[in-house]
């Protein structure tokens, strides 16, 4: 299996700041399963560009405010 890219994210943090939004609510908002949100938060899955934009729009911030690249 290829090594995972060093992509970090603040999805959990933003979700909690966003009125304790549940993983299921965020999943419904962007059209993925709750397990995919869990995988993103745990760094086991890097979402597509489309989903990254959808997540950032849900929180009303830029993509770079949600995702980062840390080597």
């Amino acid at each position: 299996m290829a090594k995972a890219p060093p992509i970090t994210n603040r999805v959990r943090d933003l979700r909690e700041r966003h009125g304790q939004m549940s993983q299921a609510a965020l999943a419904d908002a962007i059209g993925v399963t709750r397990q995919t949100i869990i995988a993103i938060e745990q760094g086991r899955y890097s979402p597509s560009l489309e989903s990254a934009f959808r997540i950032s729009r849900v929180f009303g911030v830029g993509v770079e405010d949600v995702f980062g690249w840390e080597e």
Partner: peptide, 11 residues
């Protein structure tokens, strides 16, 4: 309803 939902991008 999870069983009816289509596979998402990760799946």
């Amino acid at each position: 309803k999870e069983a009816d939902a289509p596979a998402d991008e990760r799946e």
